[in-house]
Design a binder for these strands. Structure first.
Lengths: 226, 226
DNA sequence: CCGAATATGGGAACACTGTACCCAGAATCG
DNA sequence: CGATTCTGGGTACAGTGTTCCCATATTCGG
């Protein structure tokens, strides 16, 4: 099968290029301009090398994406256990969210491909360590961190979907909402969506951070009550 | 701003083509061959029309994706309330999961763009109706269905990530796992990931459906305990 | 120290992609 | 019937990932 991770990296000693540098340049581009702008030619230009030289370090674009995911997961600070499972698992969740917000492309990659790089495994090990404070049952621990990861991925994906929609259109949050508002207003005024109408009129709109904290609390409640 | 949804659809009376037919063809292609295979030329070929004719019905590819999302959300059966908020919210969650599994590309689109089409709003209204059985507080109801949607999106995205990885490589589930196994084994044998090692050895591997049910139960527990 | 072998970088080319621009023909209206 | 608008689609362009191949730089064997 030959995963990126099992081959040893193509790294000529005598030159400055390396898989890390390639992945790093790709991360920088994706951070600044989004995944759409990330092309092999663009990466090569960033590194001042020829386009096809990149294929010495990476089999194809998909492998580059895998490397990018693992590269940024290496940024996360290693977890310090406090002894309290709940606050430790919450820290894991908040760390994951912060990372995904720092690299807005990360969410869509995590939702499309399994992450198996060494740094990803490191984080998984950390998360399992936190879950071990809650239970010594390996099956339950695995389920718990799976649940948390799923929730974080979903919540942040939704958050990023809106942020990216703005970025694509070049509008600010307020402008974007203002642009959508008349359409929503019209739909709701039709009376076909009574509960939605109530929601729009009555509900207080929480910030993304508040929504995330609320959801995470419910998830942790559910875990503790098991 | 001119959303797809606020323009009235380009639908010449005298011909067979329509936005629905375009979106339908696109859905069929994405279902059968994946989002990567979905190009404007491919859609046109499917409809037996010229490529650029599609642009009469759709401003650009992104709009087509929005239409596809809403098209399939129209498939979901309307929710019948049972009176029990817990089972109704569970039905909402399972319905969303089933739909995303039926259309494996849906997850990655929902995680990338806000869904504002009429069918999406209809489902949101349904979900809010179920949440109304739990609470009359509009803010809490909104938070509850947001949490559920986030969890479902995350859980199914992870599930699909594996399924799609297989599809891309053309391997079956067992072949794929067998391909990854040696790498994982090697990593774990190094001793650098003790908790992960324990997990792999001791934990019972649940099916995706079981994992989903477990997580959903925890989420609903958390909601009820609030 | 020199020739051979190999490691490394990258150019050319191919089959694609989305889509802007434009023109032909059909349908409709005055 | 003539003018106008509506509808379909061909051409073209700038870009994409990737394969194949060649030139040069470096290392190795004698």
């Amino acid at each position: 099968m030959s995963l990126v991770w099992s081959r040893e990296p193509y790294s000529p000693k005598r030159h400055a290029m390396s898989v890390e540098r390639v992945a790093g340049a790709a991360v920088a581009i994706a951070d600044a301009e989004g995944l759409d702008a990330l092309s092999m030619r663009r990466v090569a230009a960033e590194l001042g090398s020829g386009t096809t030289s990149l294929y010495r370090y990476v089999r194809n674009r998909d492998e580059l994406l895998d490397l990018m995911v693992d590269a940024v997961r290496g940024e996360e600070a290693p977890l310090r256990l406090s002894g309290d499972w709940r606050s430790d698992l919450a820290a894991v969740a908040h760390g994951q969210r912060a990372l995904m917000l720092r690299h807005p492309w990360l969410g869509s990659l995590l939702g499309t491909r399994p992450a198996l790089g060494p740094n990803s495994l490191r984080r998984m090990d950390d998360a399992l360590a936190a879950a071990a404070e809650l239970t010594s049952d390996a099956t339950r621990a695995a389920n718990v961190i799976g649940l948390i990861r799923d929730y974080v991925l979903g919540a942040v994906s939704r958050e990023l979907a809106e942020l990216e929609a703005q970025r694509r259109t070049g509008l600010s949050m307020e402008e974007w909402r203002a642009g959508v508002a008349p359409y929503i207003r019209e739909i709701v005024a039709g009376g076909a969506y009574p509960h939605l109408a109530k929601r729009i009129v009555e509900a207080r709109d929480l910030s993304f951070a508040e929504q995330f904290a609320y959801g995470l609390d419910r998830v942790l409640d559910g875990i503790s009550g098991e």
